[in-house]
Write a protein that binds this DNA or RNA. Structure first.
Lengths: 249, 249
DNA sequence: TAGTGGTCTAGACCACGTG
DNA sequence: ACGTGGTCTAGACCACTAT
């Protein structure tokens, strides 16, 4: 048989399309520029809109594109590096000076079962402090910090009109009275629940990087935080402060 | 107008489907169990197959399901925690004792432009060491370590038949002669290129967690590694060794 | 060869942001 | 009101795996 197969692995259309678009983005478009709409792009490449969308979805996942309903598809800026680790060497409690997070509210919703298990408490016996993190005016992450009520007694409920943000700060203050023994972080891929999606200005199900941190004190887990970062726009950075400052010289 | 709107936000079908399926997975299925095929599931829920697939894709992204062409859809085991190194503990060169990675090959492909920029060398003036990482018999990550050729001179090329794995080890040995000044890690979401996808037993475009590490020595970047972890099965862990051992007591 | 998930099509309608 | 991306349908065919 003279039918040289030549590794004829038929590449999916959307995959090839993604490559073509990606190269076009590098050479012919600049950040913030708006692309032709999906119907026109599909026609131009001679594919169905669904196929074109498969390629766009991948590019958005990789942080190359940004799509907004009612507006259009734009070329995304490079991902921003957000520092997650090494709050300058030694670990520190959330809310310590230099912390990039801003306390927002004190919530009453019960903790997820997985968090309660880590803390060794009931799902309702916790403080839940909501915090947010912004970079360049854009919110990039949303966090809930869970602290057992046994460690930090109920805060100034009697103050009446004290609003959520103040109660949140009070819990953090109480937390700082403990000595931090260490911490452990995990990072995994998740999809935004409805409430986080709204906060991060994304649709439900948008890909997020979930950073879970356990804070240790007195030989037990004293707090657990679950932070949700926009996966499309963020690059999490676990910097070694010493090394970085060394490089600056 | 008496038309109480009642927050009538019509939840997308696939989103509701995902919730229903997720609960069913918790209560009615066990790990490794095989689900009915997509056509039957779609019929059972009264939706088009594409809609059902949208829900399954999300669940796979979250590590709840595993789908294999020609086989079926199975319930995935919980994500495995893979240790990626402690933020605060002593840093170590790749290939140091206790390293979870296995050297595989010495590659000749040029480094990506972004890596060459970090190293401050030309794209061809580097060693590229391919390594792999397995957990429980399953490959979970694939890595390429780039080292400037100026730091580690060309290795035993004259040895002729010396195979890639040995050359890879030789480069690592040379690297260990330098004193490690520090390191910096970043984590971001990516999609698997064709070669990585094959190695990780996934389809091209599968979601991966990309861990980029810069190793510093002599006040410069002495090496850069780009590791690609399966995002569906992995939970990256940045453990604080001290704290964890403290908890064991 | 049979059955699975993966790709692709050509439509339709909806929700949202902007003018 | 209009144009955008988001959702959904009902099909078809393909690539892969197991038998």
């Amino acid at each position: 048989m003279g039918t040289m197969q030549l590794e004829t692995v038929p590449e999916p259309k959307y995959w090839h399309l993604k490559t073509v678009l990606s190269e076009a983005l590098d050479s012919e478009f600049s950040v913030g520029e708006i692309l032709p709409n999906e119907r026109e792009l599909a026609a131009r490449f001679g594919v169905a809109r669904a196929t074109l969308r498969q390629a766009l979805e991948q590019l958005e996942l990789e942080g190359r594109l940004q799509r907004r309903r009612g507006v259009g598809t734009t070329v995304a800026p490079p991902r921003v590096g957000v520092d997650v680790g090494s709050e300058s060497g030694p670990h520190a409690w959330p809310g310590a000076p230099g912390d990039a997070w801003q306390p927002e509210d004190h919530e009453s919703a019960p903790a997820p079962a997985a968090v309660a298990r880590l803390l060794g408490t009931g799902r309702d016996e916790v403080h839940a402090v909501r915090r947010s993190r912004t970079t360049g005016g854009q919110q990039v992450a949303s966090e809930v910090l869970y602290v057992p009520a046994t460690l930090v007694p109920p805060v100034a409920e009697g103050d009446g009109a004290q609003h959520g943000s103040a109660r949140a700060r009070a819990v953090l203050r109480e937390l700082h009275r403990l000595e931090l023994g260490g911490q452990e972080r995990t990072v995994e891929l998740g999809s935004a629940r409805a409430d986080d999606a709204r906060r991060l200005d994304r649709l439900p199900g948008a890909p997020v990087l979930v950073v879970t941190t356990r804070y240790f004190a007195d030989g037990r887990t004293a707090a657990v935080s679950v932070a949700t970062y926009r996966a499309d726009t963020c690059r999490l950075s676990f910097g070694d402060a010493d090394a970085v400052s060394l490089m600056a010289s």
